[in-house]
Amino acid sequence: MTPELHDLAELASAVRRDIVRMIGVARSGHLASSLSIVDILVWLYWEVLSLRPEEPAWEDRDRFVLGKGHGCPALYSVLANRNFFPREELWSYRRLGAMLQGFPEVRRTPGVDAPGGSLGQGLGLANGISLALRGKSSSSRIFCLVGDGELQEGIFWESAMTSAHYGLENVTLIIDRDMRQMEGSTETIMSIEPLRDKLSAFGWNVRECDGHDFDSLRQAFAALGKSGGKPGCIVALTRLGKGISFLENDPSGGRMVLGRDFMEKALRELEKGGD
């Protein structure tokens, strides 16, 4: 299925509404960092990944690893909207016994390919998956979405070496570069720049794009597709809290209290169909 760009934007808006409702109902969850990855996930799940929702464990599917597990409300909504499980599950997110846990769990949730929750670990898992698929001569690809703050974890760079050393060209790393982490800006707390130079020096093909612009995402993915023998990385420039103006401009980085008023205000803004 290849929706037009404006359909993708509508999908993204619907996913954002789901996220606000999920986190609002659960009264818990990471709203702003879920919103920043919505467009990337919509792009992946409707334009890139080869999947069979009716057969989630289909061996030849493309894999998706969510390194920044706290963004899982976005993933859950996308999976529900692609019919991996009923939408009703969204409303028990983070509840006792729920299919949708606070961080992704492979054994509970159809469509979740890798565990998440501990930052910095997504790429290592993606590498293992890639090596296994290579051994099986599979043509499946692996996409791993990580936050920018988690690049401060040392394990990430161990894994970044491994991807390049083994020439894992079926691995695509997407960095959600919103410039923020828990306590402030990444560059103030522990700078990760120059990101492009660092990853290039580690043996990666690196592209940058606007992580909220489907045309820009399309170009970046297309450009990576041409590179051989190296793992590919897309640094997607994003905005924390994207889609909700008063979150985007919140100096606390979206850690304001999720009251009923807040939810209603956020939903009203999304209903108006900003972008």
């Binding site: 670990q121 293992g128 998956i129």
Partner: peptide, 23 residues
Amino acid sequence: FFSVGMAEQDMILTAAGLALCGL
């Protein structure tokens, strides 16, 4: 056989990824 060098954390993650594919 996969050596990931002197990187025990990455060893475990690589192993977990391989196991996710049924190996």
